[in-house]
Design a protein around this nucleic acid. Sequence first.
DNA 1: GATGAATGAGACTTCATTCAT
DNA 2: TATGAATGAAGTCTCATTCAT
Lengths: 205, 205, 205, 205
Amino acid sequence: MATKRRFSPRKQPTQARARRTWNAVLDGAAQVLIAQGYERATTDRIAERTGVSVGTIYEYFPNKDAIFAALQRRWNEQRWALFEESRQIDLEDDLETVLRKTIHARIEATKLNPKLNSVLMRDVPASVTADQAAQLHDEFLAASVQIFGRFKGAIRSNDWQLMARLMIHATHAVIDNIAASEPDLLDAPELENELVLMMQRYVEN
Amino acid sequence: MATKRRFSPRKQPTQARARRTWNAVLDGAAQVLIAQGYERATTDRIAERTGVSVGTIYEYFPNKDAIFAALQRRWNEQRWALFEESRQIDLEDDLETVLRKTIHARIEATKLNPKLNSVLMRDVPASVTADQAAQLHDEFLAASVQIFGRFKGAIRSNDWQLMARLMIHATHAVIDNIAASEPDLLDAPELENELVLMMQRYVEN
Amino acid sequence: MATKRRFSPRKQPTQARARRTWNAVLDGAAQVLIAQGYERATTDRIAERTGVSVGTIYEYFPNKDAIFAALQRRWNEQRWALFEESRQIDLEDDLETVLRKTIHARIEATKLNPKLNSVLMRDVPASVTADQAAQLHDEFLAASVQIFGRFKGAIRSNDWQLMARLMIHATHAVIDNIAASEPDLLDAPELENELVLMMQRYVEN
Amino acid sequence: MATKRRFSPRKQPTQARARRTWNAVLDGAAQVLIAQGYERATTDRIAERTGVSVGTIYEYFPNKDAIFAALQRRWNEQRWALFEESRQIDLEDDLETVLRKTIHARIEATKLNPKLNSVLMRDVPASVTADQAAQLHDEFLAASVQIFGRFKGAIRSNDWQLMARLMIHATHAVIDNIAASEPDLLDAPELENELVLMMQRYVEN
DNA sequence: GATGAATGAGACTTCATTCAT
DNA sequence: TATGAATGAAGTCTCATTCAT
């Protein structure tokens, strides 16, 4: 896919130093992005913030947007890792508990860096992040479908795909928009409760 | 607010010809935006598509982003107008009917121009459209709260603000994301049914 | 042809002012080229020397090398115009006179700007000037073949194409190299005499 | 002369391994030059093609253009060596034979690597190769003058210097341009015959 | 000797904005 | 009022060169 190649990293950093530089560039990019927004996040500014020269950035990334694509990917991986680690679903959990753990884990994942979450979602052009976003979306979709599979008898509809899409879009939108406009609310139990209730009522028979 | 001043139109076009030019510029901007994306939507290209000179654009807009802010505002007004016209809530309507009419009207409004909707949402920087988006959000919020007020007894929670926010974010996200990724699905009754069901179950006692 | 499009001018300057700017840019480019060579002939330097801004250059030329392609073209046209005007071949002229007038005219054309001639030939990459050079070469080739046609009986070989190629390459090389290394020699009658003699003996029976 | 110092090799590679590396770099440079042209012949690409690191290149050459200067010099030496070896002038040879052997040897020398010949002549800036080119030119000049000396009585003019310059420029130009535009023609006897004829008639009484 | 990651000056080019006509 | 040529700041990216390992 053209987009994939266009934004794919130039060299895989295998050595420790290289990996450190790579991550430092993404850290710098995230900071500049948060502080100044996408339009002002120039390669020069990212280099300066990172403490490397522009040339070094181009050792690792073929062009500017590849940095943001990589940053989005790393952010997705970080969120997904925390999500998985934080869910901890047991075999005895009932549907409500599973939904609660899932939604809780999503909120926790977002709280890793709400500002980065917002700016990646709202300021970086979709063309840059679309591929990564679609992939994460699919992973969440699969997780949702898995839940339906486990609680087959209790699930209302059998168009799991459509139900999962609504769940994912709705849950993500609520969490991401709250993260952007009122991040403190992410800590409030009401938000979680309401989301759990919305989803439980939505999927249950 | 600085932002407001920065993006506010340079002159109120009262005369008919002026208003026609103004709208033509927004039409041109919308076309370029859809065809080329925000990054390639330059003033020159907009001027060319519109059939006027760059100079003329600057007669009506103080800077480039003011065009997109105005376009977002016009798009919001168009959607809202169709939304209101299409809802037609009667006094005898029960809660489900009201929700259905509301959601149906939102979908119809989006269908006015799904591509414009997508590109404004996903490609134009949040800083440009944030003000307009917040305002529309508030209008929808008020509409939701009004519904709760009318069906007081049947409503589960009394934190109407929070409930309304979840409703708005969830509904918008579902419709907008579907509009972006699979616009034909906007015509499917399932989508509407599922959304109505999600919201009805969410708000009812 | 890709090359043609790559170096073809961006807009045909039809208005007087535009044509003046266009020529000014080529003048500036020629001066920088002569003074600093191709490698140091940057768009910034050309703009500064021309007295316009870089942006103006890019109104007329799609990229840097298009400037040099256009300069080569203009130089070819200037030389060809003077060449034609200066040859003035009469119907009574014998072969030697025709050759002398031709060679004389070529030398005169080169003397219009020997330094520009040298730098375009030796410093600007062939990829930039090849198209123009080939075209001029063909015009001279045709002129030579025409001479052979007029003096059919006196001409040694009947492979006019090959003969013409040798004539053109040899004559051009001598004149251009002398122009580059010892321009004053262009004014010496010996050079012309020797060239005429070389060509006359070469083509005659 | 500044130029001479600028492009002179950093260290005289006396040891066998060092000389091997040196030649490998020139080979790599020649390949990149032929495949990509001067503008894209970067030190990184040359290093990669050669199979060494950039650092190693800078052990042997003070800067990039010194590589091409050295390559031009080596190419000149190779051509000259073959030229001398191939000419094999006997004491009994008459003028025509000497000219024929000379021209034949020049053509053969060019055929060693017509593409390298073209790219060095047409793509590498004159400033880089001028010194080497001038030196080779002088050697050929001396060879021509020597011929005139041997056949004193048969030679038309006594301005041997001028005659030799015309011969050299004309012969070189014909061969080099044919090598660039139609290398197969170098094998055709007509080309050689015509060149011999042109030169013989030019210098003879 | 060799390596190649890092540097950073500087090249090309775009495009929002102005202003003389 | 409209035009569009001109501006020039600012952005992206390359690549010759260095130097710590």
